[in-house]
Nucleic acid binder design. Structure first.
Lengths: 171, 171
DNA sequence: ATAGCAACTGAGACTCAGTCTCAACTGGCG
DNA sequence: CGCCAGTTGAGACTGAGTCTCAGTTGCTAT
């Protein structure tokens, strides 16, 4: 059971280095949050993270959760993504695998994908427009295979009413 | 001056037809909002629209603005887009020109583009994943040519602090 | 044309994610 | 090991968006 998550220790070290460079401190709250985030293999919401810390009787305030997420985003260890709902979701960056999302508007499932042709074409478009890209975000909304077999019809592209991925989150 | 916007009348007729099919009514509030939206050639926020109606002494409540926008999105006449800020922006759909966005994180300017190679590749990816797409949303954040010449450095992919595009809105 | 009624509206209370404030606390450098 | 900048928690605050409900209005059928 011990040493089950050596990668988490590596991430913690990475975060500590980032903090040190900025003249910031690695507090117990920050390291608990990093451990939790990197043990979670799914997209999560800030308030879900807060709830999970409370469940574990690790007392951390809402403000600290948001402040720490901000630092993690700045350090490129966490990415803030839109998944069709009207607030942010977060996902940790493992290694450096950029990916985009297919989002099922029926069951809320999120399928990640990466496609180099798409990436390359975007770089070409930016070059043509003399635009220096730093980041991009592609969501494709629709209906996944399983839901389509069950007869789900594609929604209008209105606000997606997603089934919360809480059950997936706690994996 | 009169007959300056015949296309707007066409849009109104389109909306009325949509409403009729749904058993809904074309009220004076709804038609004022449609006129305003289709006379505006830029991305706007719900509250900006509310403000513009107030400036013109057309009294429409916040709730009605949101309700009408929802109907317009359902009728595919207006699209709800994320532009890097934490709330929605809207844009009317002229004809049926789908496009994506390059967003300058320095000046807030938004460049629209459409690329058939990108679209086709996305369709291929969906097919391979057996996913039935209904809609997609691609934002590329970065620094535009003008800002780069002025020495702007690309931000970390943190929350974009955009200069509000209000000045652009009122064209 | 007009009565009737479902659809619609406005005012403002409400929700919910996210931010801010400030007094009390603490990590880590000197 | 003392100091103090950086950090935290509690809870007030903000701002976008939603909801409620009593009063109003567009439309259809008479």
């Amino acid at each position: 059971m011990k040493h089950q998550h050596p990668p988490i220790e590596r991430e913690l070290a990475r975060f500590q280095e980032f903090l040190q460079v900025q003249g910031l401190k690695l507090t117990s709250e920050r390291s608990s949050l990093v451990r939790e985030i990197f043990a979670t293999h799914y997209h999560f919401e800030a308030d879900e993270l807060l709830g999970k810390m409370r469940e574990k009787d690790v007392k951390i305030s809402r403000a600290t959760v948001y402040r720490t997420l901000e630092l993690l985003v700045k350090s490129n260890m966490v990415r803030r993504v839109h998944l069709g709902e009207d607030h942010y979701h977060y996902e940790h960056v493992s290694g450096n695998s950029h990916h985009d999302h297919l989002i099922c508007t029926t069951c809320g499932n999120v399928i990640e994908f990466h496609d180099e042709v798409l990436e390359q074409r975007q770089r070409e478009i930016c070059e043509r427009k003399k635009f220096t890209p730093t980041f991009h975000n592609l969501q494709i909304l629709g209906v996944c295979d399983a839901c389509r077999r069950l007869g789900a019809q594609p929604d209008a592209p209105d606000r997606v009413k997603m089934i919360h991925a809480n059950n997936l989150l706690r994996k």
